[in-house]
């Protein structure tokens, strides 16, 4: 961000212009103080009130939530024990972990080799494939789900294999949505790795690989100087990248 560039450029010249000094701050200032506070409070409340409500409702009783209480009249932790028995959260979680884990492993394994070839070599149709990977992520989910459903149901008719209602069916459906996405993520990741084999570099002991591990695709929007300095906690950032799709 500009504060860091400022460090580099103005450090030798004037002592008054140190980053963090009052003058520097005034130069970079975008909004007058009161307006800043208004915006921050408004947006913070906009986000936090529903989030706080999620928590408060979770310790409230069903009747309290239905009556529209914000502050629970009776605080109870009963809901947290009930989810394991009444709705079978454990089964759902196991299913999710199984299917999502399998999808992640398979799509990552297969997309690495595809992405490697796409990034390192040139061939006819390469750009078409890259465009296709992006375009496929915007195809309406319904257009994909319908024929997948028909294929599954005909697998039962013609091949005698029951797919609908099984974890395999879910796995293949997830894979349909995950493959283009994970291949694209791999493409952007492999781009950041050095092209030459490491041993040809004279500095190989000193130069750390440019591993873009905490990679945020949005960083590339600003021509590689964007979000890298955005201090989002790493876990949040990873979360944001990994939250693939939740379209049916």
């Amino acid at each position: 961000m500009s504060a860091t560039t400022a460090t580099r450029r103005s450090a030798p010249s004037a002592a008054v212009d140190r980053p963090g000094s009052h003058r520097q701050h005034e130069v970079l200032r975008l909004l007058p103080g009161p307006l800043l506070v208004i915006i921050l409070v408004f947006l913070g409340a906009l986000v936090l009130i529903p989030v706080l409500y999620i928590f408060l409702a979770s310790v409230n009783s069903d009747i309290g939530v239905a009556k529209g209480e914000f502050w629970p009249s009776t605080v109870t932790l009963e809901n947290y024990s009930k989810i394991w028995t009444s709705v079978g959260l454990a089964t759902g979680l196991t299913n999710s972990v199984l299917v999502a884990g399998a999808t992640a492993v398979v799509s990552a394994a297969l997309s690495i080799s595809t992405a490697f070839v796409l990034v390192r070599y040139t061939f006819r149709g390469r750009l078409t494939i890259l465009r296709g990977l992006l375009a496929l992520q915007s195809v309406p989910g319904t257009l994909m789900v319908l024929p997948v459903f028909v294929l599954f149901s005909s697998a039962a008719t013609y091949l005698g294999i029951q797919v609908i209602g099984t974890q395999w069916g879910l796995f293949v459906t997830y894979l349909t949505f995950a493959m283009p996405f994970s291949t694209w993520v791999m493409v952007t990741y492999l781009r950041g790795l050095p092209k030459e084999p490491r041993r040809s570099s004279p500095h190989r002991r000193r130069v750390p690989p440019r591993g873009p591990l905490p990679h945020h695709p949005a960083a590339e929007l600003a021509g590689h100087r964007g979000l890298r300095h955005l201090r989002v906690p790493a876990w949040l950032e990873r979360r944001a990248v990994c939250l693939g799709d939740d379209t049916p």
Binding site: L134, Q137, F177, P180, W184, L221
Partner: peptide, 11 residues
């Protein structure tokens, strides 16, 4: 496919 994905990707 899922636009949520494209929403995350931001190439």
């Amino acid at each position: 496919m899922s636009t949520d994905a494209s929403h995350e990707v931001r190439p």
